[in-house]
């Protein structure tokens, strides 16, 4: 790891003023589980780390009539253990436990989970987020792409969004709050993620001098939710495809559905096509299959990842059936 300066601001305002206006020279240190590995591999080489863990009001989990408020510094482990989360957002608790090993869950924060960098092996080997050779040829499209994107991959970004928790949060309708030099802003979590077009952009809407302060999840009363991950190992592995579903039922029929796929695109991938297909339908094998086909109808697999189209269909079909069969929170 290269040498760096280390600063621990005690307030949000201090943190914001210490951050730079361009990516690269400063990085926010929260749990550090992703950042330190990237620094050891020289993928990022900040000159200064801003440790935000001394900012007390970035912590805490609370439930009110407006829903769940999660401070950005809450660890995945503390959030999974929270009694309100287990009771009211059981699928979130499950996704948090499956997201990482106990040792990681005790360090990694929810804010950091939103900002973790892609697992793309070209990126992790220092070839850049949008890797190209000297002739401008895209390395992922021409090379080893079995774990890469099958949707939203028409631009130079071919990696997949790495969080397994975010699709569940989006299905629950989560919002993210951000603070920067111009004050606070709030946006739906799905709008937080963007597909970068140039190397100077990142995978999210956060500016270099902004900090995620909290994640808000609306009440999930009556929501039937589920997620389904397809992985090579049962525990502690990156999925090949995943789906998160939240259904509001009217009798035996779907009133509204939220459907989000993960590990298929450079962003968490909501599927309005699947949502529309489900609306007004009873949930059964047939309607789940139709929704899965609708979600993947525009998939554009690369040379070696066509298999992921079927995996994503299966993940979504199973998530829909799982959601329908479980009691509402």
């Amino acid at each position: 790891m290269r040498p760096f300066e280390y600063v621990s601001p005690s307030s949000r305002a201090q943190a914001v003023s210490l951050l730079g206006t361009a990516w690269g020279n400063t990085e926010i240190l929260a749990g550090g589980t992703d950042l330190l590995a990237l620094m050891k591999d020289d993928v990022v080489a900040p000159k200064r780390l801003i440790n935000i863990k001394e900012i007390k009001d970035l912590r805490g989990v609370s439930l009110s009539a407006q829903g769940l408020r999660v401070g950005a510094l809450t660890t995945l482990g503390d959030l999974a253990d929270d009694a309100n989360v287990k009771k009211n957002y059981p699928v979130l608790a499950e996704a948090l436990i499956e997201a990482a090993s106990p040792q990681i869950r005790n360090l990694a924060t929810l804010g950091g989970n939103l900002c973790q960098r892609p697992r793309c092996w070209y990126f992790r080997n220092g070839l850049g987020l949008l890797p190209k050779d000297e002739t401008g040829r895209e390395l992922v499209a021409a090379g080893e792409n079995r774990y890469h994107a099958i949707l939203g991959n028409d631009g130079p970004a071919k990696f997949v969004s790495p969080s397994t928790v975010v699709p569940v949060l989006i299905a629950y309708g989560a919002m993210v709050r951000i603070e920067g030099p111009k004050g606070k802003r709030e946006l739906p979590l799905e709008k937080f993620f963007v597909i970068p077009r140039t190397d100077s952009e990142r995978e999210h809407d956060l500016r270099p001098n902004e900090v995620i302060t909290e994640v808000l999840v609306p009440p999930a009363t009556g929501v039937k939710a589920a997620h389904y991950e397809i992985r090579q190992r049962e525990a502690f592995d990156w999925p090949l495809a995943l789906a998160a579903v939240a259904l509001k039922m009217s009798g035996s029929k779907v009133q509204t559905a939220r459907v989000v796929l993960g590990y298929v695109a450079p962003v968490p991938w909501p599927s309005p096509e699947a949502e529309q297909t489900l609306q007004g339908q009873p949930v059964n094998e047939e309607s789940a299959q139709k929704a899965a086909e609708a979600a993947l109808q525009h998939a554009t697999p690369l040379s070696s990842n066509g298999y992921k189209v079927q995996l994503a269909r299966v993940a979504l079909k199973r998530a829909i059936l799982k959601a329908a069969h479980r009691g509402a929170a």
Binding site: Y6, G32, T33, L36, A37, G77, P102, Q103, N106, L107
Partner: peptide, 27 residues
């Protein structure tokens, strides 16, 4: 591994298991 994957560096921090390779000493 020194990358928070293998677990050989596990220690307890305030009684919780963590990868000591993934924590800075200063923290």
């Amino acid at each position: 591994c020194d990358r928070g994957e293998c677990g050989t560096c596990t220690v307890l921090l305030d009684n919780k298991p963590v990868y000591s390779c993934s924590v800075l000493a200063i923290e």
